[in-house]
Amino acid sequence: MRITQGTFSYLPDLTDEEIAAQISYALGRGWPCSVEFTDDPHPRNSYWEMWGLPMFDLKDPAGVLYEINECRKAYPNHYIRLNAYDAGYGRQTTALSFIVQRPPSEPGFRIDRQETSDRRVRVSLHAYATDRPEGDRYGS
């Protein structure tokens, strides 16, 4: 099951040229970019690991694309996303965030129902990927 988080997630995966075009748009608006990765696909997992610090003062998408490729090399089976921050509001505001790499196969989620007091049912979302320990959840 393809997870759909961030911008463009209902589109086919972007090619590197399309990613570069999005980065130049972000840089053109003065938004610094940063790269993050994770192997926990849960939708409420909003804090992904940072791949280095956000990149400031860049003029050209090549620098960001270089970091994306370095991250892809180090984590070929993780989700990787690109964030662009708009500092114009005086606080950290994500202006654009989209997935630039996903694992080859995404096993998806199941719903767990837990019966609690008074016949109430709590529902939780369980990602099959998280059955395996962090670091070797996808392939490898």
Partner: peptide, 8 residues
């Protein structure tokens, strides 16, 4: 620094 210089 190299990333900042890219494209230039």
């Amino acid at each position: 620094v190299l990333k900042r210089a890219m494209g230039g």
